[in-house]
């Protein structure tokens, strides 16, 4: 997935859309918005970005999960199997992006890229809802996918690349 920071207005629609789509309890979220201001008035820059699980290719959360609940699912999406999760929290501690939370029902929960929707040919809920259309989703190995096209044509960054997790969430800058 790629998020265009030039278009994101930080409205948090992605957060509510995810909450309702996935019945995430109030008080928790699988995605969130970050605002970063740089500079001194009146020479300023502001970056707004919608963040979530980076679905890393080298995920510390998968490696440290004692039960195999956290695993790579179809297409490399990192998923937690709720009924295998014992809620130990090792994955929460290992994630450099703080992308996971302890669900009140006793398991750890996080973004699934809306796998249940993607399997039906739908976009993840956040992408489908965003009023600014600032998010692009698709297959990175397919040069014609919207996300590949954006990454080919635009400058981008990933978050905390030095952690070596090979994050798969890209920010167009």
């Amino acid at each position: 997935m790629a998020v265009d920071t030039r278009k994101c207005v930080g409205c948090s629609d992605c957060v509510v859309a995810c909450q309702t789509e996935n019945s995430v309890p109030i008080g928790f979220c699988r995605d969130w918005v970050v605002e970063v201001t740089d500079g001194t008035y009146p020479t300023l820059e502001l970056e707004l970005r919608s963040e979530r699980c980076n679905h890393c290719d080298n995920s510390p959360c998968v490696r440290c999960c004692p039960t195999g609940a956290s695993h790579y699912d179809k297409g490399g999406i990192v998923v937690v199997t709720h009924n295998k999760c014992i809620g130990c929290g090792a994955c929460i501690a290992s994630c450099p992006y703080d992308a996971r939370y302890a669900h009140p029902d006793g398991y750890v929960d996080k973004c699934t890229f809306c796998l249940h929707r993607v399997e039906k040919g739908l976009l993840p809920s956040c992408v489908a809802t965003c009023p600014t259309k600032c998010m692009y989703f698709g297959d990175l190995n397919d040069p014609k996918s919207p996300v590949s096209i954006m990454l080919k044509n635009r400058k981008y960054k990933t978050l905390i690349p030095e952690a070596g997790t090979k994050p798969q969430l890209y920010f167009l800058i």
Binding site: D57, K74, G75, G76, I77, G121, D139, N141
Partner: peptide, 25 residues
Amino acid sequence: MATRRDFIRISALGAGGTAVAWPLV
């Protein structure tokens, strides 16, 4: 670990599959 190549195939398959469950697709 599954590759991202699987990913799009699953999507396409999923869409085909849904045609049965969702006749209006």
